[in-house]
Each structure stands twice: as structure tokens, then as C-alpha cells.
Design a protein around this nucleic acid. Structure first.
Length: 183
DNA sequence: AATCTGATCGTG
DNA sequence: ACGATCAGATTA
């Protein structure tokens, strides 16, 4: 409806240099752009989870390793990991450099893609063509003026620790189904 | 070196 | 409810 007000602006690193629990809900209905030019894919984020270093469910809980190093690096980068022998998941690094935290992007709306092909973290990376080669690359997140939507807050999915922490935010899917950031 | 464990997904 | 499938972390 009122999506696409104003020209989209790329969120600055300072946006991500805050706590994951603050950044995560603000990422709802922002647009994650992967690739550039004609091959770019825009995904309007509708579901996220926050992971911090003091969180037993977080990859950063036991400190920095080769796999999670990007989580401890500068904010605003993609942290991509491989799990269950077959799935990639994409996160956006938040917080100060040296603080291991990130926001997992679990679902997004992609223009022209069946929502059932982008409504889970593993499926989303397939739809976006994201894999470990994207680990550490600068995230391209656009704010097209769409207001931060109302969100439901619930426990996170698929974890066995901190199971009652309310760190998952889910927004209603855009009624027009559009993932376009505007032009 | 051996074992365990997944920030998942599709199928039964 | 369960199996697929394997990299990374942990333990010895």
C-alpha cells in the first residue's frame, strides 16, 4: 500500500552497531539486497532472531572460532554458516567489533518467488543464492520508507538452550507481496 | 582419532 | 516423528 515511500537508502554501519535485540525488530520490512545490477535479488525481511554472546543458544557463546569469526568482526556484514549437512543460514552481524552477535534472517518476501520457497532460513538462502562465499561480505540492507511493522515476539525456533528467551520477531507479510525497494 | 551436535527441511 | 548428511566443535 504505502510501501516504497521515498528513494531507498542503504542502512549505514551505525544502524547495525547496536545490540542485536534492538536491531532485529527494526529489520522487519527492510529489504536485504543480494548481488548487484540486473542480477540483484531483493528480499523484504519478515522474520528474524537475535543472537548475542551472553546467549547459550548463540554460536558466539563459547567464544570466537574459525566458523563464527565474522560474528566478532565489524557490524553490518553477512554471517553465513552451514548446518545439518545441507542448509545455509544468513545472519547480519550487529554490535560493536569484538562482540559476537548477529541477527538471523529466517524469512523474507521475494518478488516473483513463491513465499513457501522463502519462509525458512534454509530455504531463504537457496532463494537468494547465498552460501559460505558470502560469509563476511558487507550486507546491503535498504530502507525504502516502509514503517517498522507490528511484530509478534516469541521464543526462537530449533534451539535446545535458552528455549524460553523471547528473541524471535515475526511481522505480517506485506499484503501486496512485493519485495521491491522502489526506484 | 573418535564422537557429538546441530539457529533445517521434506517426507511419512 | 524421523532421516538426510557433513562441518565444526568437543573430548580423549
Amino acid at each position: 500500500m504505502t510501501a516504497g515511500v521515498g528513494r531507498p537508502r542503504r542502512l549505514p554501519v551505525s544502524f547495525f552497531a547496536r545490540d542485536a535485540t534492538v536491531v532485529a525488530p527494526e529489520l522487519l520490512h527492510k529489504v536485504l539486497r543480494v548481488g548487484s545490477g540486473a542480477g540483484a535479488i531483493d528480499a523484504r525481511i519478515v522474520e528474524v532472531e537475535a543472537y548475542t554472546q551472553d546467549d547459550p543458544a548463540s554460536h558466539s557463546w563459547r567464544g570466537e572460532t574459525a566458523r563464527n569469526a565474522v560474528m566478532f568482526g565489524p557490524p553490518g556484514r553477512l554471517y553465513v554458516y552451514f548446518v545439518y549437512g545441507m542448509h545455509h543460514c544468513v545472519n547480519i552481524v550487529t554490535g560493536a567489533r569484538g562482540d559476537g552477535q548477529a541477527v538471523l534472517v529466517r524469512a523474507a518476501v521475494i518478488d516473483g518467488v513463491d513465499p513457501r520457497r522463502s519462509n525458512g532460513p534454509g530455504k531463504l538462502t537457496v532463494a537468494l543464492g547465498v552460501d559460505r562465499t558470502h560469509d563476511g561480505v558487507r550486507a546491503n540492507v535498504l530502507d525504502d520508507g516502509t514503517p517498522v511493522p507490528m511484530a509478534t515476539v516469541t521464543p526462537r525456533v530449533g534451539i535446545t538452550k535458552a528455549v524460553d528467551w523471547l528473541r524471535r520477531w515475526e511481522a505480517a507479510w506485506p499484503s501486496d507481496g512485493s519485495a521491491r525497494a522502489g526506484s
